[in-house]
């Protein structure tokens, strides 16, 4: 594996990031949303050239690194201020989403059990990563994985547009908007993008709420593996699974929160790290945009999409009402 294989795609991400920032500075629209739009246009208008694919495929690495660095601009004091309440909301909304999707899929729309479970994990926890993690534990079929992943991606694309509009329309505060996006949207990238597009504070809360939700993936994989193992030998749930599925970059994020809380960074260093994560996010979102492919979204089944739409509507409305009442 040679670094030159990644270079063209990395340069493309860099150029896209600089262009997104330049468009924000000259015309005003948020750089993260512009970055996603640029990636989307590249992928759907001309297609991503083969030689750019390896470099562009690194975008999740930059998103994770950006989240780690975001820890340097937060302190434990800020997190603890409303963190306990947010954690309860995260667990409550996650459980509700999983249950609503399972109920609708099995009892109302008669979808296959495993497909329902994949949709529930994707909607409730962390999008396509959760679909893939749970699919491995319950031995789902390839077509079920593809359907569930396409459905999640469809709603990622929809919520990237709808959430900022609703947030502005309702005049939501930074904390309410951030946590609302963090607990009810699906994949980490879109959550971070709409959060920071609303404001810096909203972005930080969106990311923290989403990270807490992502950390539940291990427990959900174990629960599903145990459930399906009762009827067949589909999985071997163990505590090891908890660690395997845990998003490790959360540990880096927490380490930097601890260092920032201890006053290790000077204001100038904190400003530099904040700028660094802004650049990493903008690179990541150009790549994220290339993953929203219209041809794939069209392959989403109507019934799975309807199940997820209803569950998203319930989770989104309930969480917004609860958060507006709490904050």
């Amino acid at each position: 594996m040679s670094i030159t294989r990644f270079l063209p795609g990395l340069v493309a991400l860099g150029l896209g990031g600089v262009l997104a920032r330049a468009i924000e500075l000259t015309l005003g629209p948020n750089h993260l949303l512009v970055a996603i739009a640029l990636g989307f246009v590249l992928a759907n208008a001309v297609g991503v050239p083969d030689r750019l694919e390896p470099g562009i495929g690194t975008h999740k690495l930059w998103l994770g690194a950006g989240i780690v660095l975001m820890g340097a601009s937060l302190t434990l004091e800020t997190v603890l201020e409303v963190g306990g309440t947010v954690l309860l909301v995260v667990v409550g909304v996650t459980a509700m989403t999983v249950l609503v999707v399972e109920l609708l899929a099995r009892n109302v729309f008669g979808l296959a059990e495993r497909l329902g479970s994949l949709l529930a994990a994707g909607s409730g926890i962390c999008g396509v990563s959760a679909v893939v993690a749970v699919a491995g534990a319950i031995r789902a079929r390839e077509d079920q994985i593809a359907y569930a992943a396409a459905t999640v991606l469809l709603f990622d694309a929809i919520t990237i547009v709808v959430y900022p509009l609703v947030g502005d329309l309702l005049g939501l505060s930074d904390v309410v908007f951030g946590v609302w996006a963090g607990v009810s949207m699906f994949s980490t990238g879109p959550v971070v993008a709409v959060g920071f597009a609303h404001s810096e504070v909203a972005g930080q809360w969106a990311t923290m709420a989403k990270l807490s939700r992502n950390a539940l993936i291990g427990a959900v994989v174990i629960a599903y593996a145990s459930y399906y193992a009762r009827s067949d030998s589909a999985g071997r749930p163990s505590l090891r699974t908890l660690w395997d599925e845990f998003p490790k970059f959360v540990l880096g994020f927490l380490a930097l929160v601890a260092l920032a809380s201890a006053g290790v960074f000077s204001p100038a260093q904190q400003a530099s790290l904040e700028n660094a994560y802004n650049w990493l996010f903008v690179l990541a979102f150009v790549g994220l945009g290339t993953e929203i492919q219209l041809a794939e979204l069209r392959s989403t089944g109507l019934t799975p999409a309807l199940v997820v739409l209803l569950a998203l509507f319930v989770a989104s409305t309930v969480s917004l009402v609860v958060l507006a009442a709490l904050f």
Partner: peptide
């Protein structure tokens, strides 16, 4: 390295560079 750990490594390298060289990253 797992991708998550690669992200942590990139983050750590950035923090170390900023801290050691007092690097000013513009925005």
């Amino acid at each position: 390295l797992e991708r998550d750990w690669q992200s942590v490594a990139v983050g750590a390298a950035t923090v170390a560079t900023v801290a050691v060289f007092e690097l000013q990253i513009p925005w």
